[in-house]
Simulated scan of single mutants.
Amino acid sequence: MTGSAVVVGAGVGGLAVAIGLRRAGWRVTLLERRTELERYGTAFALHPTAQDALDRLGVGAAVRRRAVPYRCAQVRTPDGRVLARLPLERVERKAGRPELLISRPYLIDALADELDALGGVTVAFGENVADVAALSAEHDLLVGADGLRSAVRAARFGADSGPRKVGSTAWIGIADFASSVHGETWGKGRFFGLTPVEPGRTNWYAAVPEGTTAVELPDLFEDWHDPIPRILAETDPTSWLCYEMRHLSPALPTFVHDGRGGSGGHGGRVALVGDAAHAMTPNLGQGACTAVLDAEALARAVVQHGHTGLPDALRAYDRERRRSAQRVAFASRSLHRFVSTEHTRLRDAAARLLPG
């Protein structure tokens, strides 16, 4: 016997959990506040563990067709001196496969195509969820995959945890030429990253003091090593994306309500995945990975415990994912503080000690 689930949010986590539940035979409704899937964005990193989860969801092969391996990258100073190597080779040796990079639209499309192929999922766009309690009452399971400003989290888990600024603005984009330099360059209070994303193109991102405008951005990096000035000079500023970097704080005490007693006087079984549960700064490049791992773990727990064991499934999901995801979020936030410091001499000395 299977059940009925409603998933709020059609980003990476929402699409992935909808796939997992549908493959298990559940009736799934997917609600998205936007009028279409959000296909803009640059590169996502996929650790081998996330690739394994995508394989279990049936989309690994489709993702690998559009992804590129990420095998060599360094941390540099603005003048180009190498401070350290990123541990990509070590990751590949341990896992037997490299970390991958994929354009966000390609990952979204791979997940959406799999969901279409499965069939039987009701997808509704332009849905701003207002009455979470009523929605939960209509289904056996409510999944909040609605991001950092999650309506599901606010309604069912309280308002104590919410978006918190970190004092930085992120600018991201894609340059239409390949760079032979990959990794991050750390300056005083700012940093710049370069990764492959597909043949002949380079994904880039910059973290700068909060409020920095597109007009001001090139001046902050004009004397940095190649190809950083060229990246900013030869890409169209109107194609750049910008957002204020935030994370979820304080960490949630649970990712689930199992329906035993409810929350705030409401019953129903609820789980959070992705940014709704543990939004983090992008410094470790693990946002998409953790969302995929959450989604697959939740669907797997539901399958293992069955419809009648849903409370046990939710608790199993929480045990598997909460501490792990929150450790990644804490590490990412700590790395942001380390990289963005004004005290560069001590930071750079410490970076030289990092294992490559």
Score class of each variant (00 low, 15 high):
D236P: 09
A84M: 00
G309D: 11
W186K: 06
G14Q: 06
P311R: 10
L284T: 03
L310R: 01
H278I: 05
L57E: 02
R34S: 14
R322T: 05
D113S: 11
E210I: 12
D52L: 10
W240Y: 04
S168E: 13
G158A: 06
E92K: 09
D113A: 13
V17H: 03
A62Q: 10
G20S: 05
P253R: 06
S136M: 05
V215E: 14
G306M: 01
D223P: 12
V143N: 01
V132F: 12
P311G: 08
V256F: 03
V121H: 03
P355T: 02
A16D: 03
G261V: 09
T235H: 01
R322Q: 08
P250R: 03
F255C: 00
H307Y: 13
A155H: 09
M280T: 00
T2V: 15
R90V: 13
A175Q: 11
H247V: 02
Q326G: 03
R322W: 03
G162H: 05
W204K: 02
D258I: 08
L37N: 00
V91D: 10
A61R: 06
F125Y: 14
A18W: 01
A133N: 12
A170C: 15
E296K: 08
V7P: 07
V59I: 12
F157Q: 03
A178N: 02
L141M: 04
I102E: 07
V123Y: 06
R190K: 11
G265D: 02
S332E: 02
K94N: 14
A175G: 12
L100Q: 11
C72T: 15
Q326S: 04
R246S: 12
T2W: 09
T235I: 06
T195G: 07
G189I: 03
A277V: 04
A130S: 15
W26S: 08
G25V: 10
F157T: 09
R315G: 14
A178D: 08
T35M: 13
E138K: 09
P282Q: 00
S239V: 05
A84C: 08
G162P: 03
R93T: 11
G262D: 08
V17D: 01
A170K: 15
S263A: 13
L314N: 03
S239W: 06
E32N: 03
H305W: 10
G265N: 04
E92I: 02
T238Y: 11
